[in-house]
Protein backbone atom coordinates (compact mmCIF):
# COMPACT_ATOMS: atom_id res chain seq x y z
CA UNK A 1 0.00 0.00 0.00
CA UNK A 2 1.44 3.37 -1.00
CA UNK A 3 1.52 6.33 1.32
CA UNK A 4 -1.21 8.09 -0.66
CA UNK A 5 -3.40 4.98 -0.44
CA UNK A 6 -2.94 5.05 3.32
CA UNK A 7 -3.89 8.72 3.42
CA UNK A 8 -7.13 7.89 1.66
CA UNK A 9 -8.14 5.21 4.16
CA UNK A 10 -11.14 6.48 6.17
CA UNK A 11 -9.91 4.84 9.35
CA UNK A 12 -6.40 4.34 10.67
CA UNK A 13 -7.65 1.27 12.52
CA UNK A 14 -11.03 -0.37 12.81
CA UNK A 15 -12.12 -3.07 15.21
CA UNK A 16 -15.17 -5.10 14.29
CA UNK A 17 -17.07 -7.15 16.88
CA UNK A 18 -13.81 -7.53 18.75
CA UNK A 19 -13.84 -9.81 21.79
CA UNK A 20 -10.74 -10.65 23.83
CA UNK A 21 -10.47 -13.65 26.10
CA UNK A 22 -8.10 -14.60 28.89
CA UNK A 23 -8.65 -18.38 28.84
CA UNK A 24 -12.34 -18.79 29.68
CA UNK A 25 -12.91 -15.20 30.75
CA UNK A 26 -14.23 -12.83 28.14
CA UNK A 27 -12.54 -9.56 29.10
CA UNK A 28 -14.15 -7.38 26.41
CA UNK A 29 -16.85 -7.89 23.80
CA UNK A 30 -18.55 -6.14 20.88
CA UNK A 31 -15.85 -3.51 20.43
CA UNK A 32 -16.56 -1.63 17.20
CA UNK A 33 -14.14 1.25 17.20
CA UNK A 34 -13.28 3.30 14.13
CA UNK A 35 -10.09 5.25 14.73
CA UNK A 36 -9.78 8.41 12.66
CA UNK A 37 -6.34 8.97 11.11
CA UNK A 38 -4.07 11.70 12.50
CA UNK A 39 -6.37 12.40 15.41
CA UNK A 40 -6.06 11.62 19.09
CA UNK A 41 -8.52 9.03 20.34
CA UNK A 42 -8.83 8.55 24.09
CA UNK A 43 -10.26 5.48 25.77
CA UNK A 44 -11.60 6.14 29.25
CA UNK A 45 -13.49 4.06 31.76
CA UNK A 46 -13.33 2.55 35.23
CA UNK A 47 -10.77 -0.07 36.27
CA UNK A 48 -11.46 -3.46 34.78
CA UNK A 49 -13.46 -2.18 31.81
CA UNK A 50 -10.92 -3.60 29.37
CA UNK A 51 -9.43 -0.42 27.95
CA UNK A 52 -5.81 -1.57 28.36
CA UNK A 53 -6.75 -5.01 27.05
CA UNK A 54 -8.10 -3.40 23.88
CA UNK A 55 -5.17 -1.06 23.29
CA UNK A 56 -2.75 -3.95 23.81
CA UNK A 57 -4.70 -5.94 21.23
CA UNK A 58 -4.09 -3.19 18.69
CA UNK A 59 -0.42 -4.15 18.42
CA UNK A 60 -0.74 -7.79 19.42
CA UNK A 61 0.82 -7.29 22.86
CA UNK A 62 -1.71 -9.71 24.35
CA UNK A 63 0.08 -12.48 22.45
CA UNK A 64 2.55 -12.49 25.35
CA UNK A 65 -0.20 -13.53 27.78
CA UNK A 66 -0.76 -17.27 27.63
CA UNK A 67 -4.37 -18.29 27.13
CA UNK A 68 -5.25 -14.97 25.54
CA UNK A 69 -7.08 -15.01 22.23
CA UNK A 70 -9.30 -12.75 20.13
CA UNK A 71 -12.49 -13.00 18.11
CA UNK A 72 -13.66 -10.51 15.53
CA UNK A 73 -11.24 -8.39 13.58
CA UNK A 74 -8.93 -5.41 13.73
CA UNK A 75 -8.41 -3.87 10.32
CA UNK A 76 -5.17 -2.00 9.73
CA UNK A 77 -4.12 -1.03 6.21
CA UNK A 78 -6.79 -3.36 4.81
CA UNK A 79 -5.49 -6.37 6.72
CA UNK A 80 -6.99 -8.13 9.69
CA UNK A 81 -4.12 -8.03 12.18
CA UNK A 82 -5.87 -10.50 14.48
CA UNK A 83 -5.23 -13.18 11.87
CA UNK A 84 -2.53 -15.71 12.90
CA UNK A 85 -0.73 -15.37 9.59
CA UNK A 86 0.09 -11.72 10.33
CA UNK A 87 3.54 -11.27 11.85
CA UNK A 88 3.08 -9.48 15.21
CA UNK A 89 6.57 -8.00 14.98
CA UNK A 90 5.61 -6.24 11.75
CA UNK A 91 2.43 -5.00 13.42
CA UNK A 92 4.42 -3.56 16.34
CA UNK A 93 6.76 -1.81 13.95
CA UNK A 94 3.82 0.04 12.38
CA UNK A 95 1.85 0.43 15.59
CA UNK A 96 4.15 1.54 18.40
CA UNK A 97 3.42 1.55 22.11
CA UNK A 98 4.36 3.95 24.90
CA UNK A 99 3.86 2.45 28.32
CA UNK A 100 2.66 3.65 31.70
CA UNK A 101 6.11 3.85 33.26
CA UNK A 102 8.92 5.20 31.11
CA UNK A 103 11.15 2.26 30.30
CA UNK A 104 14.35 3.51 28.66
CA UNK A 105 17.13 1.00 28.12
CA UNK A 106 19.98 1.40 30.63
CA UNK A 107 22.09 2.88 27.86
CA UNK A 108 23.00 6.30 26.57
CA UNK A 109 20.30 8.67 25.34
CA UNK A 110 21.74 8.29 21.84
CA UNK A 111 21.68 4.50 21.94
CA UNK A 112 18.12 4.44 23.23
CA UNK A 113 17.06 5.84 19.88
CA UNK A 114 19.67 4.29 17.63
CA UNK A 115 19.62 0.77 19.07
CA UNK A 116 15.87 0.31 18.82
CA UNK A 117 15.90 1.71 15.29
CA UNK A 118 18.79 -0.54 14.21
CA UNK A 119 17.22 -3.77 15.47
CA UNK A 120 14.03 -2.74 13.68
CA UNK A 121 15.98 -2.51 10.45
CA UNK A 122 16.08 1.27 10.12
CA UNK A 123 19.06 2.24 7.99
CA UNK A 124 20.65 5.54 7.02
CA UNK A 125 22.34 8.33 8.92
CA UNK A 126 21.89 7.45 12.58
CA UNK A 127 22.93 10.88 13.90
CA UNK A 128 20.24 12.48 11.81
CA UNK A 129 17.64 9.96 12.93
CA UNK A 130 18.53 10.48 16.60
CA UNK A 131 18.33 14.25 16.28
CA UNK A 132 15.07 14.24 14.30
CA UNK A 133 13.39 11.78 16.68
CA UNK A 134 14.43 13.82 19.72
CA UNK A 135 13.33 17.03 18.00
CA UNK A 136 9.94 15.52 17.19
CA UNK A 137 9.58 14.36 20.78
CA UNK A 138 10.35 17.91 22.02
CA UNK A 139 13.40 16.66 23.92
CA UNK A 140 16.32 17.67 21.71
CA UNK A 141 17.01 21.06 23.31
CA UNK A 142 17.21 19.48 26.75
CA UNK A 143 19.54 16.60 25.86
CA UNK A 144 21.56 17.63 22.79
CA UNK A 145 24.70 18.20 24.90
CA UNK A 146 24.38 15.02 26.96
CA UNK A 147 23.56 12.43 24.32
CA UNK A 148 26.18 10.05 25.70
CA UNK A 149 24.87 10.15 29.24
CA UNK A 150 22.80 7.29 30.62
CA UNK A 151 19.10 7.74 29.90
CA UNK A 152 18.22 6.65 33.43
CA UNK A 153 19.64 9.97 34.67
CA UNK A 154 16.80 11.89 32.99
CA UNK A 155 13.68 13.00 34.85
CA UNK A 156 10.51 10.91 34.53
CA UNK A 157 8.96 13.30 32.03
CA UNK A 158 12.15 13.40 29.96
CA UNK A 159 12.38 9.59 30.06
CA UNK A 160 8.82 9.34 28.78
CA UNK A 161 9.56 11.75 25.93
CA UNK A 162 12.68 9.67 25.18
CA UNK A 163 10.45 6.60 24.92
CA UNK A 164 8.20 8.53 22.55
CA UNK A 165 11.30 9.53 20.51
CA UNK A 166 12.32 5.85 20.44
CA UNK A 167 8.90 4.95 19.10
CA UNK A 168 9.07 7.70 16.46
CA UNK A 169 12.50 6.50 15.28
CA UNK A 170 10.99 3.37 13.73
CA UNK A 171 8.48 5.53 11.81
CA UNK A 172 5.19 4.02 12.98
CA UNK A 173 1.74 4.82 11.59
CA UNK A 174 -0.04 4.66 14.92
CA UNK A 175 1.22 5.40 18.43
CA UNK A 176 -0.56 3.65 21.28
CA UNK A 177 -0.18 5.17 24.73
CA UNK A 178 -1.20 3.22 27.79
CA UNK A 179 -1.52 5.66 30.71
CA UNK A 180 1.60 7.51 29.54
CA UNK A 181 1.40 10.20 32.21
CA UNK A 182 0.31 8.30 35.28
CA UNK A 183 3.87 8.35 36.69
CA UNK A 184 4.47 12.01 35.85
CA UNK A 185 3.88 15.30 37.65
CA UNK A 186 1.27 17.75 36.29
CA UNK A 187 3.71 19.92 34.32
CA UNK A 188 5.45 16.94 32.71
CA UNK A 189 1.93 15.62 31.95
CA UNK A 190 0.93 18.84 30.18
CA UNK A 191 4.17 18.74 28.17
CA UNK A 192 3.36 15.23 26.96
CA UNK A 193 -0.17 16.34 26.07
CA UNK A 194 1.09 19.27 24.00
CA UNK A 195 3.57 16.92 22.36
CA UNK A 196 0.73 14.54 21.48
CA UNK A 197 -1.12 17.46 19.90
CA UNK A 198 1.87 18.25 17.69
CA UNK A 199 2.47 14.60 16.79
CA UNK A 200 -1.17 14.18 15.76
CA UNK A 201 -0.41 16.24 12.64
CA UNK A 202 1.59 13.23 11.43
CA UNK A 203 0.56 10.24 13.52
CA UNK A 204 -2.64 8.62 14.70
CA UNK A 205 -2.61 8.42 18.49
CA UNK A 206 -4.71 6.20 20.72
CA UNK A 207 -4.39 6.83 24.44
CA UNK A 208 -5.79 4.91 27.37
CA UNK A 209 -6.15 7.04 30.44
CA UNK A 210 -7.65 6.83 33.90
CA UNK A 211 -7.55 10.57 33.98
CA UNK A 212 -10.78 11.86 32.48
CA UNK A 213 -9.50 15.42 32.51
CA UNK A 214 -6.57 14.32 30.41
CA UNK A 215 -8.87 12.75 27.84
CA UNK A 216 -10.92 15.96 27.80
CA UNK A 217 -7.85 18.17 27.38
CA UNK A 218 -5.81 16.18 24.98
CA UNK A 219 -8.03 14.14 22.67
CA UNK A 220 -10.19 14.71 19.60
CA UNK A 221 -12.36 11.63 20.07
CA UNK A 222 -13.29 9.79 23.24
CA UNK A 223 -14.51 6.25 23.74
CA UNK A 224 -16.11 5.44 27.09
CA UNK A 225 -15.78 1.82 28.17
CA UNK A 226 -17.66 0.17 31.01
CA UNK A 227 -18.30 -3.30 32.35
CA UNK A 228 -21.41 -5.13 31.25
CA UNK A 229 -23.45 -7.31 33.64
CA UNK A 230 -21.33 -10.34 32.66
CA UNK A 231 -18.20 -8.31 33.62
CA UNK A 232 -17.03 -8.10 30.02
CA UNK A 233 -15.87 -4.65 28.96
CA UNK A 234 -18.04 -2.89 26.38
CA UNK A 235 -17.80 0.39 24.54
CA UNK A 236 -20.73 2.43 25.83
CA UNK A 237 -20.25 5.58 23.81
CA UNK A 238 -17.82 6.94 21.27
CA UNK A 239 -17.85 10.47 19.91
CA UNK A 240 -16.16 13.81 19.49
CA UNK A 241 -14.47 14.68 22.79
CA UNK A 242 -16.20 18.05 23.17
CA UNK A 243 -19.58 16.37 22.80
CA UNK A 244 -18.75 13.52 25.19
CA UNK A 245 -17.70 15.98 27.90
CA UNK A 246 -20.45 18.58 27.43
CA UNK A 247 -23.41 16.58 26.23
CA UNK A 248 -22.96 12.79 26.34
CA UNK A 249 -25.74 10.76 24.76
CA UNK A 250 -25.68 7.82 27.19
CA UNK A 251 -26.64 8.15 30.84
CA UNK A 252 -23.82 5.80 31.86
CA UNK A 253 -21.30 8.16 30.26
CA UNK A 254 -22.92 11.14 31.98
CA UNK A 255 -22.77 9.34 35.35
CA UNK A 256 -19.10 8.49 34.87
CA UNK A 257 -17.86 11.86 33.76
CA UNK A 258 -19.84 13.71 36.44
CA UNK A 259 -18.45 11.40 39.13
CA UNK A 260 -21.82 9.80 39.90
CA UNK A 261 -20.71 6.40 38.80
CA UNK A 262 -21.45 3.23 40.76
Amino acid sequence: MTQSDQRNQPYALESKDLAIYYSNFRAVKDINLKVIPRKITAIIGPSGCGKSTVIRAFNRMNDFISGSYMEGSILFQSRNIVSPDVDPVMVRRKIGMVFQRPNPFPKSIYDNIAWGARINGVKGNMDELVERSLQDAALWDEVKDILNQNALGLSGGQQQRLCIARTLAVKPEIILMDEPCSALDPIATLKIEELMRKLSATYTIIIVTHNMQQAARASDFTAFFNMDTDRAGIMVEYGITTQIFTNPRDKRTEDYITGRFG
Partner: peptide
Protein backbone atom coordinates in the same frame (compact mmCIF):
# COMPACT_ATOMS: atom_id res chain seq x y z
CA UNK B 1 -16.41 28.70 26.75
CA UNK B 2 -18.42 25.74 28.07
CA UNK B 3 -16.33 23.39 25.95
CA UNK B 4 -13.10 24.97 27.22
CA UNK B 5 -14.23 24.71 30.84
CA UNK B 6 -15.27 21.09 30.33
CA UNK B 7 -12.18 20.01 28.44
CA UNK B 8 -9.31 22.23 29.57
CA UNK B 9 -9.98 22.69 33.30
Amino acid sequence: ILILIATQQ
